[in-house]
Amino acid sequence: MKIKNETVRLVVLLFTFCAVVALVLAGINKVTAPIIKEVEAQKTRESLMKVCPSATDFKPVEFDMAAHPNILEAYELTKHGQLAGYGVVVSSQGFGGEIKMMVGVANNERVLGVSIISLSETPGLGTKADDVEWLNQFVLKTSPYKVVKGKAEADNEVVAVTSATVTSKAVTAGVEAAIAFAGGLE
């Protein structure tokens, strides 16, 4: 096939390239999409197990997204059919951007565990908030939390990560939001 008009020829050629590339990608997507979904479900399961190791099963909770803009996902955690608590994925505004975390909240609104899913805080300072020992403070202390520097005196005081008060406050705000949200679910 010989096309005389040059513009038409260029358009047809470029369109063909795009169409072929799109077809190939569609094929790859068909293969990888279910695997990616499985990997993501596995990740969710792992982070839920981290914040509530005693749970044996979980199922997603439906909620009004518009009313809770910073709640990304919520799961009902059960232990042999009995409600053990909730796993809530919260987003909070940190120093360098969004901090995403999974908070496990028990029926009695006690925190079962906190784990950071992603954060883009200052490397070496804010990133230290992603520390099991530091995050465990939320389990040991009781809400409403107060971020303090240096040493905690009352049992609601959370010691801030050194030189990362903004990050510490952001994580604390996220945990509080999760508690409030879980409280509203019952």
């Binding site: 050629l13 590339v21 990608l25 695997i35 990616i36």
Partner: peptide
């Protein structure tokens, strides 16, 4: 590939491979 649309064609080819690699890495 005609000379006039070579850059556009290269970008389509490159982005095709990048998207494929991204999907494979994610999986």
């Amino acid at each position: 590939i005609p000379q006039k649309i070579r850059i556009a064609s290269y970008v389509v080819i490159i982005s095709g491979f990048v998207t494929a690699i991204e999907m494979l890495m994610k999986a």
